[in-house]
Design a protein around this nucleic acid. Structure first.
Length: 599
RNA sequence: GCCCCUGUAGUUCAAUGGAUAGAACUACGGUUUCCUAAACCGCCAAUCCGGGUUCGAUUCCCGGCGGGGGUACCA
């Protein structure tokens, strides 16, 4: 960081002195030198040709000479290849940089104060009629990681969840439970609450389909049969009763939702995600109606003959959008408006981020415009963090076809295979307790899952391959965790030998190109964190951690650390190792992935 | 039909408009007197097609083709 800053300032000065031109620092491209060339940092001089009025080679040569004269302690040497000025940075500069990084408590993390911008991040947002599945897992992991990243970039973050706890889908589960449940409870059956409720949702669908088929056999059209089946009619009646506050229905509703929440809490806990504030749709949908009526009064919206309320967005290049049905009930959009109102009352939100799948891109485009019209300051700038679908090796995940992957099953399976795969290795650690072995399996299994999902660019559809994710080789979570554990092992051994890793290095030492390359990578960490925040994309942090670990493994293979005889060099390598392990821990921590001290 | 996203080795993923497009998995071949071999090294292999912008394009723009999603009383 420091090195780069010095160089950029140097280049500005060079351009000024040599060509008498002012160049803003953003226009100066300093990049890592490619492996095939000598040097550490490369200046691209093409953008300066207009002001230098010389050939690329000559311009690069001029600047190189100037820099070397200007800062002889930093620039050891340089070479010119076409329009690229490759700078060789002195060993002392690198060592100094490493010590700076090593001394910083929270390298790459921006402090947060009371005055920092307040960012609210909504994620998870489940329905209460069925358990969480793989799609929710991606949502939760992204939401959690993004929250960490935004906080690391100096924002006050409020994590929020909007629970879709009312509507026809809940009534379906309730109805099926009444009809076929025989009073089953999570306690009486031993089934996790969300799964129990989900089972009745499935039961409803099964019986409903049977009824539809019967009606069709009697000569009804499919659409008609779907509308006329007794079960769906009953469910609708139930929804009306719910809206009318029927005490019996409300009681059952409350009861079943409690079961589901208890189940969700377990899943959230297992995944390691959480929220600062939870909103429930049953509290927000009426607020939404109110807000829509307010907009209608102010003339932002209009009413059609059948009584339905609409927003005309044709001026914005979109269609007309329904806000209230003709029977006065609310739709999805209405509820989101209501939730926005409550949130704004509760928090002085500067920026709102919704973590929601990309099938709802259009919805959020519309929501942004509507909120803006209704006077929410953050409406226009709301961010829809839109992510792609998760597919499986054997095809797509479709709930109708029964190919959904349940979140709880998935987590349990990952932890199981982590245990199996590491069994013989864990036996190597003779002093390990059963408890610790279990904990390691949990960390590794979850790490595998999280890393595999988070390393992919969020907006792309992805393929989740459980076997590949838990591989201990390759670009995987376990591989990074394993390398971390090995570094920690070395540091433990050093401590046992009474070697204290110093804060800084007193005497200079010679360092190799591999070591420089590692220091250089460490120095990039803050930039990576910033990028993740600017692009709302945690994946670059994952890939950064992997690159760092790979580089370290090569170094580890080629050089000894504890057996190094030169005392000063040994200390240098320990400082380097400790810094690397710290950054791996921080980086993985931003992704919500734990790293084990040993495995 | 219209709108949005997407297209990179056999496969899964990378690459602020920069040098010979990187990894990983798989296949094959090597490396253990070595701090955790759960490591390391080697080898084969790709930018969907056609234009444009420029010193330079996987990246930006236009036109095709392929994949995914949305498209108003589902959430």
């Amino acid at each position: 960081m420091e090195v780069e800053k010095k160089l950029i300032n140097g280049v500005v000065k060079a351009l000024n002195v040599l060509y008498g031109a002012e160049m803003p620092t953003q226009n100066i491209q300093l990049q890592k030198t490619k492996k095939e060339f000598a040097g550490h940092l490369t200046l691209v001089v093409f953008p300066f040709l207009k002001i230098s009025r010389k050939k690329p080679e000559d311009t690069a040569q001029d600047i190189g000479n100037f820099l070397k004269q200007e800062m002889p302690t930093v620039i050891a040497d340089f070479n010119v290849v076409k329009g690229f000025l490759n700078l060789v940075i002195s060993s002392e500069s690198w060592t100094e940089l490493l010590c700076q990084i090593h001394q910083e408590e929270q390298f790459g993390i921006q402090p947060v104060t009371d005055k920092s911008p307040l960012v609210m991040i909504e994620y998870s947002s489940p329905n209460t009629n069925k358990p969480l599945h793989l799609g929710h897992v991606r949502n939760n992991l992204l939401g959690c990681a993004l929250s960490n990243v935004m906080a690391a970039n100096g924002n006050r973050v409020v994590k929020t969840n909007i629970v879709n706890d009312r509507g026809i889908h809940i009534c379906k589960s309730m109805l099926a439970w009444l009809k076929y449940g025989n009073g089953a409870t999570p306690e009486s059956t031993g089934i996790k609450g969300d799964h129990l409720v989900g089972d009745y949702y499935v039961a409803f669908d099964k019986h409903y389909k049977e009824q539809v088929n019967e009606l069709m056999a009697k000569g009804m059209s499919e659409d008609e049969a779907k509308n006329e089946a007794p079960l769906i009619k009953e469910a609708r009646e139930m929804l009306v009763k719910w809206e009318q506050n029927d005490p019996e229905i409300r009681g059952l509703w409350k009861q079943m939702n409690e079961w589901v929440y208890a189940g969700f809490d377990e899943t959230y806990k297992a995944l390691g995600v959480g929220f600062d504030k939870i909103y429930y749709e049953s509290d927000t949908y009426l607020e939404g109606k109110e807000k829509v009526m307010e907009g209608l009064d102010k003339g932002f919206f209009f009413r059609k003959e059948d009584g339905s309320v609409w927003a005309d967005l044709t001026a914005e290049g979109l269609d007309e959008k329904l806000l209230l049905r003709s029977d006065g009930t609310s739709v999805y959009m209405t509820q989101d408006i209501g939730t926005a109102k409550l949130r704004f009352n509760d928090f002085p939100i500067d920026k709102m981020i919704y973590v929601v799948g990309n099938e709802q891109n259009y919805h959020f485009q519309v929501l942004s415009i509507l909120l803006d019209k209704l006077g929410f300051e953050w409406g226009k700038s709301l961010v829809h963090f839109s992510y792609g679908m998760v597919e499986l090796p054997n095809g797509k995940m479709k709930s109708r076809e029964g190919t959904v992957v349940d979140a709880d099953d998935l987590v349990a399976e990952m932890i199981n295979s982590a245990r199996t795969m590491s069994e013989d290795k864990i036996n190597k650690l003779t002093d390990i307790s059963e408890e610790e072995a279990k904990e390691i399996a949990r960390i590794v299994g979850l790490g595998a899952l999280k890393y595999f999902i988070l390393k992919v660019d969020a907006r792309k559809n992805m393929l989740f391959n459980p076997e590949e994710s838990i591989d201990f080789n390759g670009n995987t979570g376990p591989f990074i965790q394993y390398t971390y554990a090995r570094i920690r092992s070395i540091l433990r051994k050093a401590a046992e030998a009474n070697i204290v890793v110093p804060k800084t290095l007193n005497e200079p030492t010679e360092i190799s190109e591999k070591e420089i390359s590692l220091i250089q990578m460490l120095a990039e960490f803050p930039t990576v964190v910033k990028q993740a925040g600017n692009d709302y994309n945690p994946s670059c942090i994952a890939n950064y951690c992997y690159e760092l670990v790979k580089e370290y493994n090569q170094f580890y293979h080629d050089f000894s650390i504890l057996r190094e005889e030169n005392e000063n060099k040994k200390l240098f390598r320990l400082i380097l190792s400790e810094s690397i392990s710290n950054i791996i821990r921080t980086g993985m921590g931003l992704l919500g992935i734990e790293v084990p001290e040993r495995m």
